[in-house]
Amino acid sequence: MISVDVEFFAMLREHAGREREKVETNADTAAELYSELADRYAFPDIGRMKVAINQEFSDWESRLSDGDSVVFIPPVAGG
């Protein structure tokens, strides 16, 4: 079991009803964590999401470590 800090943005924040959450999880990878939270909060399909771990774009199969900061990145829309 590890503990990670998850911050939510855009539609994910609305689905989760919160800006951030400390998640205790058995997920090994970012993809597993997304799947776990998608079940809990009815997040959209992982299809077009990206993930950032500790402020860097990362692979969905990256292994999570205790204390990581995780942010799921829906398709962006700056400019």
Binding site: F9, V71, I73, P74, P75, V76, A77, G78
Partner: peptide, 27 residues
């Protein structure tokens, strides 16, 4: 401007005249 629109984690929600709203994206 092209790279900012593609890579920087910024999200835009549009609010429409009919009261609807939605998160849109650059794709």
């Amino acid at each position: 401007i092209d790279e900012i629109k593609l890579r920087v984690p910024i999200w835009k929600k549009e609010h429409y005249a009919d009261g609807d709203s939605g998160w849109i994206n650059n794709e």
